[in-house]
Design a protein around this nucleic acid. Structure first.
Lengths: 231, 231
DNA sequence: AAGTGGTCTAGACCACACC
DNA sequence: GTGTGGTCTAGACCACTTC
């Protein structure tokens, strides 16, 4: 092996050896130094190739213990979570949103639990429908901790949606996400122009800035919505 | 600025400057060489810090044009896609699976379309129910291209599920995924012990090895299933 | 032509885990 | 102690894009 190889070539070759069972699941593979000699390249190049494969779940690496082929090749799916307006516009449809409600009020107990806040504190409650080509696309039911983001108490979400306002004005550091299928509630059905009981694709999201809870939101998508990605 | 900083310190500082609007959305930030001087480190260290932030969606980088703060900070969610057995066992429940059907037959047209295969070729049809603590957890309806993986035509999926067999024996290089909410079909209801029409969390997945389609599968989860992650 | 990021090199020191 | 991966350096050349 005399030709020099780039880190991508090395990744390809490593994946080929894993795929062909030359290196089977759980096997120890040669050290970075050995591979650098084999591929006639610098150790840093091998390091980058293997480090990235480990991040993707193909390899397990430990100091001193060496690099092993992952026992269960965990496949990872990466979703972009765009602003709803962008998501609609990128699908080639016209975006509009309707603010339904904006009021400071006491939230249901699960909202306080998700945010880790005391139940005696009123939260800003915002509900809105996002439209794609005048058809209901998404029903958003959001609770905002007004202490978390300066200016949010004064924000009027009629022109800029709460979704977009928060993305632009709060640098979220952490969030919990859950995806599920739920039967449309009467409120969902009303907002989305469908009937109660219909299966809806629902996302629950709670976000923080550092240790401060910012917002808890339930996003109910119109029937037929699909979230797609590639691995 | 005389103390040396690691690439993680640099990432923290860059994120801080973005968060504080010192570098606003769309702004050009200093070049790698300039930052290397400011942080008193090698250009390679700056490169790694910025490259990783760009991969995460915080920055946009282009040769000659420089590095800019991303206009819309795309948040990404990463899901692990484990083998179903592992997913159940990690939730602390006992896993079992029941093979319902295993036959070479002609598939519905959408399956051929998803795989990009001619409709005259019979495919291996496998259906199974995965159980968690004896309760139905997932109903799997799978079509397999027997030409794609050596040995799959002879594999008996009664002890090792098709799901697990394929993960262990086929090194998937690419896959399409879609998540949606669907009303339970009579077959879903029967397999999952629920009633038709119930909202189910459904995953459609199609996978390839290189350019060769391997399998198309529909995974219908029992009512109440949630897919969760953190960003 | 020139300036940016993309990658590679050869060498070094360190942190960690196992001995 | 010892060997592994984790990281950093100083320098180099290249690829791409804009001028």
């Amino acid at each position: 092996m005399s030709a020099q190889r780039s880190y991508r070539d090395i990744q390809e070759e490593v994946l080929r050896r894993i795929g062909s069972r030359e290196w089977g699941p759980g096997d120890l593979i040669p050290s970075e130094i050995a591979l650098a000699e084999e591929f006639n390249c610098a150790r840093a190049t091998i390091n980058r190739a293997l480090r990235e494969l480990a991040e993707k779940g193909h390899l397990d690496r430990k100091r001193r213990a060496g690099t092993r082929v992952a026992l269960t090749p965990v496949r990872q799916a990466i979703f972009d979570i765009p602003i709803t307006r962008i998501e609609v516009e990128e699908s080639g449809r016209a975006y509009r949103h309707l603010l339904l409600r904006r009021a400071l009020e006491t939230a249901p107990a699960p909202v306080y639990a998700a945010l880790g806040l005391d139940a005696d504190r009123p939260l800003l409650h915002v509900t809105a429908v996002h439209l794609a080509d005048r058809q209901p696309f998404l029903y958003e039911d959001r609770w905002i901790n007004t202490d978390a983001v300066p200016g949010v108490a004064d924000a009027d979400f009629s022109s800029l949606s709460a979704n977009e306002w928060l993305v632009r004005n709060a640098l979220i550091s952490r969030g919990d996400l859950s995806f599920s299928a739920e039967a449309a509630t009467p409120a969902d059905a009303d907002a989305l122009g469908t009937t109660a009981g219909k299966p809806l694709f629902v996302i629950h999201r709670t976000t923080w800035i550092g240790a401060t809870p910012v917002t808890a939101v339930r996003l109910a998508h119109a029937p037929g919505y699909q979230l797609t990605t590639t691995i």
